[in-house]
Design a binder for these strands. Sequence first.
DNA 1: AGCACA
Length: 234
Amino acid sequence: MGFALFSTAHQAIAAKTALQDMVFDAETKVALHTEMAKKNLFVKRCVGIDANAVDQSKRLRTGGDYTHSPYAPPFHPPPPAVSMWGTPGYITAPPPYNPYAAYPVPPVAMTSPAPVTGPTAYAPVQNTKDNPPCNTLFIGNLGDTVVEEELRSLFSVQPGFKQMKVLRQDRNTVCFIEFEDVNAATSVHQTLQGAVIPSSGRGGMRIQFSKNPFGRRKDSAAGLASVLNGAPAN
DNA sequence: AGCACA
């Protein structure tokens, strides 16, 4: 018994029908039987790098957790392609025939490591003082080695993100991030509090609300209005 | 603890 992995479900079905009942032993007249596997074949990409995954798979194997799923290690994440089963649409767009398509083992994207958009860890943060909530966050505790692109990739994917400004000072780097509204800023304020950006070299970042929201340096409107009114600038 | 842009 064996399993073969194809680039597309379409190609798998084509191969299945082509090979079905083919006599592969002329003497004994034994015919080949093919059927679709119950799960996608799991192909390990980089051997030896992910020691954890290997260990875990071994542990699970010896755990005998094969009873309900004899064909694939139970831990492997459900590939997105699974949703295509039963969907009539999966035959509508057969790719142009390419005899080598299946060779460089297809993008087993399901096993790829998480994209660099997330923080690697969270560190405790003593969040001493904060300012009243507004739509702009002030990010502190960033080392001067921090890479702006890492900050950007972390924050620009947050819902409501509008813009970001990095301010480098002598020993400190801080960063301002504007969001659509106070709610978006508030939720990021708590979800990313203490997030660790490796390049910062400082541990977790400290997130506070900005003293001045984006686009307003001081409360210049009020100040100007008072001046024009002759009212005392409180 | 460090708060710019207009």
